[in-house]
Design a protein around this nucleic acid. Structure first.
Length: 266
DNA sequence: CAAACTCCCTGTTAGC
DNA sequence: TGCTAACAGGGAGTTT
């Protein structure tokens, strides 16, 4: 499911096609896909804008427009953005189509309808409360540890909290905790500085590797086109790749959580 | 403040 | 074989 590496993959794929294009027409097929403003406002306001840049913040795609507006997309579970031809839908699940000049169209493909589009004056209206960007060079392991140290809840739900750290979802949190040998239920404030530093580096390494592989191969026909192979996620009952113990699965914060019972101690 | 639950959805799968 | 119910998932919002 699209987490930071998958959104970054989409961003890289779209950037060159979209930059400099002018929006000519917008058609929304599933109104609830547009979170803000209304479907009608969205369709009416967007045409005439030109795309200045295509960026990413956490799991959001941030498209900067001229004059002064932002188009943001959150892919949630099954969303994808695909370049196609105007009027020719790339799948039966296209929820919105944004036609551009040069006869191309940006199509929001989303089987489960959880994805969202936003048209706002300021990007901060949508992404203002996000936590630090894990790959931002200005975000250090010292910053990470001092934030972590103040939290008393379990580490796993904390890492999924987008206002604590932006961009991680279930897959990469499970992978990072395994790599750093930390139990998903371990209270954040009881993670040592050494372990916190290792976790920080594990998160970065996993995200970088996944971006290089164009995302994960997990998913049932949706979002499995990447080459990143998980070591623990989705591998309950199979041997740990470090110690051969069998991977266990528990539920933490209503989410399935695989871990190695002997490598990852509480 | 933190944890638990609800909602939004559909394709897949386990169970009968 | 064919059906139904359960399930997965992100994250905002609500309740405990």
């Amino acid at each position: 499911m699209p987490e930071l590496p998958e959104v970054e993959t989409v961003r890289r794929r779209l950037e060159s096609s979209l930059k400099g294009r002018k929006i000519t027409r917008v058609t929304v097929h599933w109104p609830r896909t547009v979170e803000r403003p209304s479907k009608v406002e969205f369709e009416r306001s967007l045409p005439g804008h030109t795309i200045k840049s295509v960026k990413r913040r956490g799991k959001y795609l941030v498209i900067e427009l001229a004059p002064c507006a932002y188009l943001l997309a959150h892919l949630r579970m099954s969303g994808d953005l695909i370049i196609g031809k105007p009027g020719t839908l790339v799948s039966r699940w296209v929820r919105a189509e944004i036609e551009l000049d040069k006869k191309i169209s940006l199509q929001f493909d989303d089987t489960r309808k959880f994805g969202k589009l936003y048209l706002v004056k300021q990007a901060t209206e949508v992404i203002g409360k996000l936590g630090p960007e894990p790959l931002d060079p200005g975000f250090t392991e010292q910053n990470f540890y001092s934030n972590l140290h103040q939290k008393k809840g379990a580490i796993k739900p904390l890492l999924l909290n987008q206002s604590f750290l932006a961009g991680l979802g279930n897959i990469y949190v499970v992978e990072a905790l395994w790599r750093a040998k930390i139990h998903p239920l371990k209270p954040a404030n009881r993670v040592s500085e050494t372990a916190s530093n290792l976790l920080f580096r594990s998160i970065r390494r996993i995200l970088n590797e996944a971006i290089e592989s164009s995302g994960t191969d997990i998913g049932d026909g949706v979002w499995d086109a990447g080459g990143y192979r998980t070591r623990v996620y989705g591998r309950e009952g199979r041997p740990c790749q470090r110690c051969k113990s069998l991977i266990k699965r528990i539920v933490v914060g209503q989410r399935g959580t695989e871990f190695c019972p002997s490598c990852q101690k509480r």
